[in-house]
């Protein structure tokens, strides 16, 4: 497969690995985390979204849509999802970009070309490219080709992954990845199932195996108040990381930034009342982890 679905290419990315980076977000994720701040990345397929405040009512979209799938008078969604073929032609004619097509089919060459544009910044800052998502390993063939091409071009590669995949897929990617940013969401399987929709068993076992074959793994813990920030879970996480011989951990505070995106993709947000953890709270968690002789960074 020479094409993949990309939902964003973010330049001047400063928090997904060392230096100045370009982060390529691939669409599709097997997890369904309650706190996800990129909910538009979950579906593998392209999606059309509508931002009401940008609409000037010019009706260009109505005239363009061949499937009669748009009704501007509707309250919540202007799209009739049954009729919409997700072709994106309405987004092409929308003058204000109120309608957007999420997900763009791109070839490996197109993506690499975009990545290469910022080479001078990577070289200056010892940065590179980070593949994220969604779960980038969902499109593993595409990702594998991208990684290979990047390595050929001597670019530093990072992979931001949930680890929820088959071991052989991860193993193959590992050979072409300089740095892993590997998430651990919860140590208790039932909780993991509840809040992410999947079991943590493959995630933890993959990490164990990865630690044996890869020397540069940065663990990332999203800290979600009331879900995974209790002492018991943090201790269990610290123990696990330490036991498999890893040292570097980033703890990332939950934030609300994704909230308005849920509206646009017409999904309910499951954590409307959760507060962002305070600085003190993050410090407390860092101290617990440091007891396991881990090097803890607050933030990406």
């Amino acid at each position: 497969m020479n094409k993949g679905t990309v939902f964003n290419i973010q330049k001047y990315s400063l928090h997904d690995g060392p230096g100045i980076r370009t982060t390529v977000f691939l669409k599709g994720c097997p997890l369904n985390c309650w706190w996800c701040h990129n909910p538009e990345s979950k579906a593998l397929a392209k999606q059309v979204t509508f931002t009401k405040k940008l609409c000037i009512g010019c009706e260009s979209c109505l005239n363009r849509c061949e499937n009669n799938a748009i009704d501007l008078s509707r309250e919540n969604s202007i799209f009739d999802r049954g009729k919409c073929k997700r072709c994106g032609s309405c987004s092409e004619v929308c003058p204000t970009n109120a309608i957007k097509l999420l997900g763009k089919e791109m070839t490996v060459a197109e993506v690499v070309n975009e990545i290469e544009k910022d080479r001078v910044f990577y070289e200056e800052s010892e940065g590179g490219v980070t593949f994220s998502g969604g779960e980038p390993l969902m499109q593993h063939d595409f990702l594998y080709q991208l990684l290979k091409k990047c390595k050929q071009k001597d670019l530093h590669t990072a992979l931001d992954t949930s680890g929820f995949t088959d071991w052989h897929i991860l193993e193959k990617a590992a050979k072409l990845t300089d740095l892993f940013l590997y998430d651990i969401k919860h140590m208790t399987n039932e909780k993991h199932l509840k809040f992410t929709g999947v079991s943590n068993a493959p995630i933890l076992s993959n990490l164990q195996r990865l630690a044996l074959v890869h020397s540069n793994i940065q663990i990332r813990l999203p800290i979600i108040p009331g879900i995974n920030d209790d002492e018991e879970n943090i201790v269990a996480t610290g123990e696990f990381i330490s036991a498999i011989g890893l040292r570097n951990v980033s703890i990332l505070a939950y934030h609300h930034t994704g909230v308005d995106k849920y509206e646009r993709i017409e999904e309910a947000y499951k954590l409307p009342n959760t507060l962002e953890p305070t600085h003190d709270e993050m410090q407390r968690i860092a101290r617990i982890l440091e007891a396991f002789r881990l090097i803890v960074r607050i933030g990406g």
Partner: peptide
């Protein structure tokens, strides 16, 4: 938070 963005891209609450 863990990233940078255009101010305009954020909702009013944020």
């Amino acid at each position: 938070a863990g990233y940078s963005d255009y101010f305009n891209n954020l909702n009013k609450g944020l």
